[in-house]
């Protein structure tokens, strides 16, 4: 799929086309995440429930601690785990760039608006960066970078279905987990359907269409997709009914955690609690 998609992405110019190009890129990224989750590495061999619990504990600790050093330490652990799990550093740097841009915009005003000791004055503008403002902004950035790295490491080393099962182990209602799983699965189908429709349109076009006509076609595409979505949802419900579904989904129980898994979760819990208590 990806070759055809990229071909389309490069040729498209309109807003809808660009958006779809980005969506198709997300699909490709999800595929590469599935591949990295399947390869051998440190975290790929760990039970998804342990990874989910571990990531949640570290994220909570990073979010709760006021210590820059501790957040940086957790961040370093996350990067170390990523490397030991054979994840590409390039993917992490792409993530960090995006995160820094977004959270940087949010953190920037804190540099100047937080009351405190003056630390540095911006030349020409004359704005004053306070010590407290600097600490607040850098702590926010460090937290966001660390937690997003932990999240990325978790989803890149865990197959999606294993992550869903792990959510069930943490008492998330079965119906919610099933809905998330089905939503994820059908999003891909609809992206593929939309791209097929656009490719079909593109293959019959010669030259550029006027903007108004392009907008009309975009609206028509959305309309067709919606009607297909309604039809499909009805058919999926029938397919579920045909196999015995009667309003309540039943799922298989997971195998119990091994003593080693319990040991890892317990050790991490004690460590995080100890660090926060200090």
């Amino acid at each position: 799929m990806s070759e055809g998609l990229h071909h389309l992405v490069h040729r498209r110019k309109g807003f809808l086309d660009r958006t779809l190009g980005e969506i198709s890129h997300v699909v490709d990224r999800s595929f590469s995440a599935e591949l990295s989750a399947a390869q051998g590495g440190l975290l790929q061999g760990v039970d998804a429930r342990v990874k989910l619990a571990g990531a949640a504990l570290l994220i909570l600790t990073a979010a709760a601690t006021p210590s820059h050093a501790l957040v940086a330490g957790i961040g370093a652990v996350a990067v170390g785990l990523a490397l030991a799990s054979r994840l590409r550093l390039g993917e992490l740097t792409t993530l960090w760039t995006g995160v820094l841009l977004f959270s940087g915009v949010i953190a920037l005003p804190a540099l100047f608006l937080t009351p405190g000791e003056p630390w540095w004055r911006v030349p020409i503008l004359g704005w004053t960066v306070t010590t407290t403002g600097f600490r607040t902004a850098t702590l926010l950035l460090a937290r966001v970078l660390t937690t997003s790295t932990l999240g990325s490491v978790l989803v890149s080393t865990t197959p999606w279905h294993a992550l869903l099962r792990a959510m069930r182990a943490f008492r998330l209602p079965v119906v919610a987990v099933v809905l998330i799983g089905m939503t994820y699965r059908y999003i891909f189908l609809f992206i593929q359907t939309t791209l097929d429709m656009l490719e079909g349109r593109q293959s019959r076009l010669a030259g550029e269409l006027p903007a108004a006509q392009r907008r009309g076609m975009a609206v028509a595409t959305v309309g067709v997709l919606m009607s297909k979505a309604f039809e499909l949802s009805g058919d999926v419900h029938l397919a579920m009914q045909a196999r015995g579904y009667r309003g309540e989904v039943h799922v298989l129980d997971e195998a119990p955690l091994r003593p080693l898994d319990w040991l890892m979760i317990s050790a991490l819990t004690v460590l995080c609690a100890g660090v926060l208590w200090r």
Partner: peptide, 9 residues
């Protein structure tokens, strides 16, 4: 259409 029938992860 198998996509109708295959809805599990």
């Amino acid at each position: 259409n198998p996509d109708v029938q295959l809805f599990c992860p």
